[in-house]
Amino acid sequence: MTPFDYTRASSPAEASRLGREGATFIAGGTNLLDLMKLEIMTPDRLVDISRLELDGIDRTGDGGLRIGAMVRNSDLAADAIVRKHYPMLAKALLAGASGQLRNKATTGGNLLQRTRCYYFYDTAMPCNKREPGSGCQAIGGVTRLHAIFGASEHCIATHPSDMAVALRALDARVEIEGADGAVRNVGLDEFYRLPGDTPHIESILAPGDLITSVILPPPEEGRQTYRKVRDRASYAFALVSVAGRIRMEGGRIARAGFAFGGVAPRPWRDRDFEATLEGNEPSPALFERAADALVANASTHGDNAFKVPLLKRTAQAVLTELTES
């Protein structure tokens, strides 16, 4: 690791101020320290935000849920309200990492974890995300983990989080305290930026912006789940994953909320997929039509072509599971 100064923030305002001055926040540190050891990230100042009192899980006035940014992944997955009313979120969290890592990893940090693209991790290789303008070796290289949606000619890396995929399907919003003290919240769809020609900029966060919580809308009736397909049965990143929820009314799908992981630079949502389902009676033919709509705009890069049929089948399997009597 390159040397750095270490400060422990005593308040979100202090953290934001130091962040605006160029400091990097550290919470659980499970991803950041890994990247610092490899000198992929080389902050010269760390601000420890892990002891800020942002670790509550509380009902909101409208019956939703406010999850503090410092809530550990293991605590969130074990929370009784999450398990009962937002089970896809508990399942997504439990599908990620290991028991030890979930005990450290935080809600805010999980959202901001970096890609596991092999070329991003290999400092001997060019990478537009790590070194803007240096090029992308993944394109034309080994692409088993790479994106089929939302990528650009500059970067085809995927976002690795499971948690964020469930949050996207649940219409979560991210609450941010800015360096000026103003608090705003944005939907997860607006929170992540697609790579375009600036793949090193991954979210809308400006220097000093601190994630303070994630807010879930009130739970909806219906079924939900999270299914992850990976190379090992445990402790591996997703090849593809599906977070889905369905509310039925009179034998028809009244509402579908789906997000897909392992396939894009951010948790992927496709309104055509949901629109194809809504208002219709569930059937294998309908599910196939929806899955076809989902992958209609997929763009593959050699090795990752298998993700198109795998995503279709996984989506159809989840739809079947959520609608069978």
Partner: peptide, 19 residues
Amino acid sequence: CTVLVNGRRINSCLTLACM
């Protein structure tokens, strides 16, 4: 490197002592 910190198991290699 697993150790228990405040009763919880963590990877001691992925955390700074000063934290």
